[in-house]
Amino acid sequence: MEEITKNIVKPETYLARSPLYRVHEAAGAHFEACASAAQVASYGDQSEPLAALIDLSVQHRFGIRGANAIAALSAAGLSVPEKPNQCLNSANGETVLRLGKTEFWVLGAMESGTCSADSSAFADCYPVYCQDSHACLLLSGEQLPDIMAKLCGVDLSESVFPKGSIAQTSVARINAIISHLPDKEGTHFVILCDSAAAEYLWACLLDAMDEFGGKAAGLNYLF
């Protein structure tokens, strides 16, 4: 299946599927092959919304933790954020999230959707299966702190939640990890939530975005 080029594809062609793919299909989204699965490329041909919600669940990510995690990341050429609840980009485009003293999640570069390694490459660390336990949503555009304030009790405005910050908190009454992506023009929040609750949170976010002109979108919104 690796041979399939970046053409319009169907999610059910692949063994790995986003927990949200049916929602996208029902809304008329177009998919492209990405990381051995179908990634939403665009959400119909609507005009560019002020804020966009993009499902990145099929893109690769992995987690490691344990006493050796910091050394292992450095050895693999990945950045290590200085403190818990910070995120940092690596040279190859991956984003490293530091969630605890010794817990790190690595998000694949957004354009390719892939990581340079996975947790099995870190034999002396404990794996965290965040590819499957969590859905990965990207909120991008204008007024993101206002949108999130309808769902979340933590202040996410730029002055107190600058680029590179992470908040592990409750969003619409479910646990979520919100990362303010570093080194990117504009505001981008990556929201990682329980994959089983992805459809629920997706609907909550769309509802919250509506008054700010926010809509569902695909990866084409970014590139």
């Binding site: 599927r17 619409a172 089983a196 629920y200």
Partner: peptide, 14 residues
């Protein structure tokens, strides 16, 4: 308000 009533679905739900 807008009632938040979280639900979870298995991958086979549909």
């Amino acid at each position: 308000g807008r009632i938040f009533d979280p639900y979870r679905r298995t991958p086979m739900h549909h």
